[in-house]
């Protein structure tokens, strides 16, 4: 569960958002939908505790796992080494982490590239590694900033499969996106954000409205 209570953020005397409140219960996937430049990323960074909110607070039942929009990877590091490093940082034991990484790499057809330097892999493979680095420890609270931008359909399906599995295990997931089109079948609700207020719309209601 994650609960956002009246958070406000200001940059250079410009109010990005004010008194934003919502909560995501356990075992739910919500999508934060807004146009470009409205402040989605700032809101997600504030929830992930990368930015400090000017006022209000964020209460989370577990440590937040966050996938940033501008995703960097250590290009001079090997795939397995990077994932092991991240898994250990997230609190996993080395032995358990190694087994989990091997399973994930096999599932995502990356096992043969485990000893490759990340910089030598294609962009698609790098995006898979970024995604794996966030879900590696089966997080209970997950925030993904535009996780599907530049991802092909096959990988999108794989990612959704993983997210739905996490949801079934009780995780609260928040995904940011520009439009609702692709998400209606997977998300439980939409948080429509216009920079000032947030309106929560049920997924079924949105599907009916769209029809």
């Amino acid at each position: 569960m994650i609960r956002v209570n009246n958070i406000t953020k200001t940059f250079a005397e410009r109010e990005i958002f004010s008194n934003v409140s919502f909560s995501i219960p356990d075992a739910k996937i919500y999508a934060l939908v807004a146009d470009n430049g409205v402040g989605k990323t700032t809101l997600l960074r504030t929830i992930a505790n990368i930015y400090n909110a000017d006022s209000g607070n964020v209460v989370s039942s577990a440590k937040v796992s966050y996938l940033p929009e501008e995703r960097g990877l250590p290009l001079e590091q090997k795939v397995f080494d990077f994932l092991l490093f991240v898994a250990q940082l997230r609190g996993m034991r080395k032995k358990i982490a190694k087994t989990r990484i091997t399973d994930l790499l096999k599932k995502y057809s990356l096992f043969e590239f485990a000893d490759f330097y990340i910089g030598n892999l294609s962009k698609g493979m790098q995006q898979k590694i970024q995604f794996l680095s966030v879900i590696i420890d089966n997080p209970k609270v997950l925030i993904l900033d535009e996780p599907f931008s530049g991802i092909d359909e096959k990988n999108k399906e794989l990612f959704w499969e993983e997210l739905l599995e996490l949801k079934n295990n009780g995780a609260s997931i928040l995904i940011s996106a520009h439009k609702t089109d692709d998400l209606t079948h997977f998300c439980d609700a939409f948080l429509l954000f216009d920079g000032k207020s947030i309106e929560m719309v049920d997924s079924l209601q949105l599907q009916v409205e769209q029809k």
């Binding site: 992930a48 966050y66 940033p68 960097g72 990877l73 250590p74």
Partner: peptide, 14 residues
Amino acid sequence: EKESRLAEYYISIF
């Protein structure tokens, strides 16, 4: 790390 924005990912963990 700052240039590649890897730092953002790290500081979300610690």
